[in-house]
Structure formats: structure tokens, C-alpha cells
Design a protein around this nucleic acid. Sequence first.
DNA 1: CCCAATATCCAACGTCCGTTGGATATTGCG
DNA 2: CGCAATATCCAACGGACGTTGGATATTGGG
Lengths: 217, 217
Amino acid sequence: MERMTTPRRGPGRPRRADQRATPDVIIEAAAGLFARRGFDAVGMREVAAACGVDVATVHHHMGTKAALYECCFARVFAAESEALTRAVATAREGLSAGPGPALAGLHELVDVFIDFLEDRPEVTGLWLRRWLEPDRHAELDARYSEPLYQAVEQVLAEADAAGVLSEPQPHLAVRSLVWSVHAHVVGLLSGANGARQRREFRAFAHRWLDRMYPPPA
Amino acid sequence: MERMTTPRRGPGRPRRADQRATPDVIIEAAAGLFARRGFDAVGMREVAAACGVDVATVHHHMGTKAALYECCFARVFAAESEALTRAVATAREGLSAGPGPALAGLHELVDVFIDFLEDRPEVTGLWLRRWLEPDRHAELDARYSEPLYQAVEQVLAEADAAGVLSEPQPHLAVRSLVWSVHAHVVGLLSGANGARQRREFRAFAHRWLDRMYPPPA
DNA sequence: CCCAATATCCAACGTCCGTTGGATATTGCG
DNA sequence: CGCAATATCCAACGGACGTTGGATATTGGG
């Protein structure tokens, strides 16, 4: 039966036309459920129902529940990493164009991050639940969080060296802003006036940037 | 049998000397487990084992699992509310003693909050998991979070009126710092050098206060 | 067209869960 | 002491869970 081996879906393997539960469909549905209610509260039958298929079909495509959860997080992380890495590169380019463009680049970087999370609130759910996993926290932090954090911290360090701003604790500063954005998204999920909340939070984030990162005297 | 009615333990009702699983013992054990692994991942048998009793005993004293979870959160929230309310009152007293003591009072308030969470990391676990509950978020926010937040925001507003600092968005500012502290505690749970982390974060929090809340020009 | 591949479903297995009825031992009170 | 109260445990129930073996229908490649 070769059940548990992940079905090779690479180039060369044909995809059947009657496939209703593609891995993409399953992962997207599962990611939303996991983000909203957590790993233990979501059942495989519920994921299957969200895709309109039987539970055995989900297992056929995804293997175990833990593997499905891992796929959801990897997918979400890849999208976030792609968006942020590009924004970091843009911000780095502006560093040599003077203090004005450099600070504008950092503001742009913050906006990209806020935009990303506002568009995909489930990312916040997955990240926060991951951070709450006690045993694998260090492992997951090293694999997922650290590379992204370090990229942003490096931009701050370069901006510091270029005399654009002064930042003695980029490690904590970046995490502080990231968690603030996550808090904002969590509030959005049940907020009455989303548009107003979005506008006010964006203004706060930029004020945070301006006040926390003043140009060196 | 009168099983589910909470056993009246108020004054007048004698407490038996052979009681091993007092409500306090159960709640403390359950709060730690719930904070670390979440509501769904913790079983009643596990809570009972942590207290050294049978699962039926836990049900006898606490009723349902949901009621036990509610008790844990209420207990933790009461302790936090008590500590913070007192610190807020102290900070408010200092507002009329000039800008120096007023700002020192705010720093003290931040320290009290950090001390509380560093001493009881499980509080962070319970809060974050609560904020992630999608359905009851608004209800719980109104019952638990809002009163505390408003007390702190009121101090900031009074400090603003007294000319000690300028704070156009106390709502978001307070939440931003609160989440930063929670992030710090989550990192502590698996951190290698807790003492160093604690020292650095405290310095960051005070820098955050100084930069985010400059005295009005 | 024929066949191998596979996407899907049904039914089931074993396990763990929250919960409870009832029995037992231990206490405080008169 | 005698009695009522209760703290504790044992055993079990019904249900939900993750997982899987096997049957069935549908496809693409030759």
C-alpha cells in the first residue's frame, strides 16, 4: 500500500484530474484551524471536513497529524521569510543614501511586516502557539525565528554604524516590536472596528520607530 | 451524592485533617500544567497525578475541567491584579511630587510588573493562551484585561496632564510593553542564561520607558 | 483498450479522554 | 462512642481521537 511514504508529487509524476484534496488545499485549511484553536483542539476529521473529504484521505496525503502541523508551519514560515527577506534587502540598500532614505527604509520594513500579518492573521496564531511549546522552543527558535531576527538586527547594526540611528539592544528591540504587532493582530481577530485599529496601530508602530531609534546626537 | 456542587469551604465548614488535595494544591498544580502545555493537552488524570490523588478526587473538589481552568486563571489574575493595583496607586501618588519622582514611579511600576511575571512565569502562559482563544476573546478581555489596562492608562493620562510625559496612545503603548514582557518571559522558559537575560531586558524596558515617554517639550 | 497507479471512502481498532456511581476509610461533632 | 459528613479511590461508561487495512472508483500512459 505504501501508505505513509509522502506521495511524490514532483515533476514527472502526473497529477490526477479528480484530486479534490491537494496538499495545498489541506495545508491551507489545517493552518487556519491550527492557528485559531491549537494543535490538540483540532481533529483530523475536522481538517478533512473542512476540505470536504474523508479523514483517511488527509492521512493518505499528509501522513501523521504532527507532520501536517509541521507542513502548515513550514508553509507559513516560508511565505513570511520571503516577504521579510526582500524588505530587509530593500532597507539595506537605502542605508547608504543618507539618514532620510535610511529611516524611510526602516519604516517601510515595519510596514511590510504589519501588512503581512494583517493579511494572514493565522500566522500570528501559529507563531504564538509555537513559542508556547515548552520542549521544542529552543529548537524551533533556532530553526525559524533566529534567522529572520538576525537579518533585521543586522540592518539595525549597519544603520547604527552608518550613523543613522543608535540601537544598543537590537535583539530585544526587534522582538519587542514583533510581539507588539502580534498583539495587534490578536486584537484584530475580535475587534469591532478593524480599520480604525489598523490605522492607529500603524501610527503607533511608526512612533515607536521614531522614538526608540533616534539619530545619534 | 451532591457531587458537582462546589463543596462549601467557607467559615463554619470544618476542614478534614486527612485532606491531601485541597483546592489550593490542585489549582496550583493545574495552573502550571495548563500554562505550560495548554488546556487540551493536559488531562484530568495528569492533574490528579501531580497532586498524588485519583482523578475522581479532583472532580470532587473542582467540578468540570473547564471550571478548574477558570479557577486557575481567576487565581492567577487575582494575584496579578493585587500586585499591579498597589503599584499603580504608588505611582499615582508620586505624580504630584514633580517630574523626577513621577517618572521614578512609572519605572517602579514597570519593575513590579516584570518582577511579578519573572516570579510566576506560568502567568504568561495562561494569559497568552487566553488571548488566543478566538470565541471568548472579547468577553475575557473585558472581564480581565481591560480593568488592569485602564488603571495603568489612567496613570499615564494623569502624568500627561501633569506635564510629566507626553503619551498620545496610552492604549497601544501599555499593550506593547506588556507583550514585550510576556515575550521576555517566554524566552526565559528555555533560556540558557536567565540572569543575564533578566538584566538586559530590565535595562531595555527602562530605555523603552525613557524613549517612548519623553517629557513634553 | 488495458493496466498500473492513486485518490477516495468505509469501517474498524486500540487508546485516551472527561465524567460519574458507588464503595470505603477517615474525620469532626454531639 | 455513634453518627453524619466527606475525602478518597476503584471501576466503568460513552465518546472522540489518531491511525490504518482494504475495497472502490477514476485516472493517465502504453
